[in-house]
Amino acid sequence: MSLFADTPLQLPDAELDFYPQWLNAELADLWLQQLHRQTPWQQPEVNLFGRCHPVPRLLAWYGDAGIGYRYSGLYHVPLPWTPLLAQIRTQLVDFVGQPLNGLLLNYYRDGQDSMGWHSDDEAELGRDPIVVSLSLGGGRRFDLRRKGQQRIEHSLHLDHGSLLVMRGSTQHYWQHQIAKTRKPCAPRLNLTFRYVLDGDGFAHEQ
């Protein structure tokens, strides 16, 4: 199903598919509870302009052997796949028809946890990266803007059990964010699967 199947809006140079109810509520609830409980969450610090700042959310990196996670001079050795994460990965590989060997889990505790503007366009992700994003828990707004522009071009609400697939040239031309909000928000867990080309993997962080 196309992201924009129900609206005349089209994003040029982008390939996005959105499945608002990819998971039924019962299974989404179960996965959310199990992943929240099982994941060894971390909140690393990044160095920006000479000062250390904690990342505004909790995270964990899983992957095949040697598929690491590098950002701001830090390197995370991949955690081994748990039975549940291996099951989810298998389902998504079958669904999207492409291999996935790394997973960044982000846990947004409330509306003040966020992800800044970025593109997942690192060389280690290949020429046309695939990012498969499964949302569990409280819904959050997902914004898109053209690279080099300040105006938000389109926003999408990522709800419990929804799946967003970005591939093709999307990361070359577009940035996305999860902005802070003062509105009450239930905790949200986001699984972003991707394919890293080699063992010196990089997953975007800011």
Rank of each mutant, 00 (worst) to 15 (best):
L30V: 11
H76K: 12
N106W: 02
G102S: 13
V55Q: 12
Q43E: 05
P56F: 05
V55H: 08
A86H: 06
Q34K: 14
D29L: 03
F49S: 12
L85S: 03
G102E: 05
D29T: 13
N101Q: 09
P40N: 09
Q38G: 01
A28K: 04
R57M: 04
P80V: 12
L85Q: 00
T39C: 14
L84Y: 10
Y69A: 01
Q42S: 13
Y69Q: 01
R70M: 03
W81L: 07
L103V: 10
T90D: 07
W41R: 10
G97I: 12
L35N: 02
P44T: 08
L30E: 15
L105Y: 04
Y108D: 10
L105G: 08
A86K: 13
C52Y: 13
Q43W: 06
L92E: 02
L85M: 02
T82C: 02
I67L: 11
P54D: 06
D29P: 08
G63M: 01
H53Q: 13
H76N: 11
G68C: 15
L100P: 04
G97R: 09
P78D: 02
Q42W: 09
P80F: 03
G97P: 04
Y107T: 01
R57L: 08
L85G: 01
L48Q: 11
Q42N: 10
Y69K: 05
A28I: 04
Y108N: 09
Q38K: 06
P78S: 05
Q87W: 01
V96H: 05
P83T: 14
G66A: 03
W31Q: 04
A28N: 02
P40T: 13
A65K: 13
H36I: 14
A86G: 11
C52W: 14
G63L: 10
I88D: 00
P78R: 01
H76W: 14
R37M: 10
G102Q: 11
L92M: 03
L103D: 08
P80W: 03
W61M: 00
N106Q: 03
A65I: 12
H76C: 07
R51G: 00
R51P: 01
P80K: 11
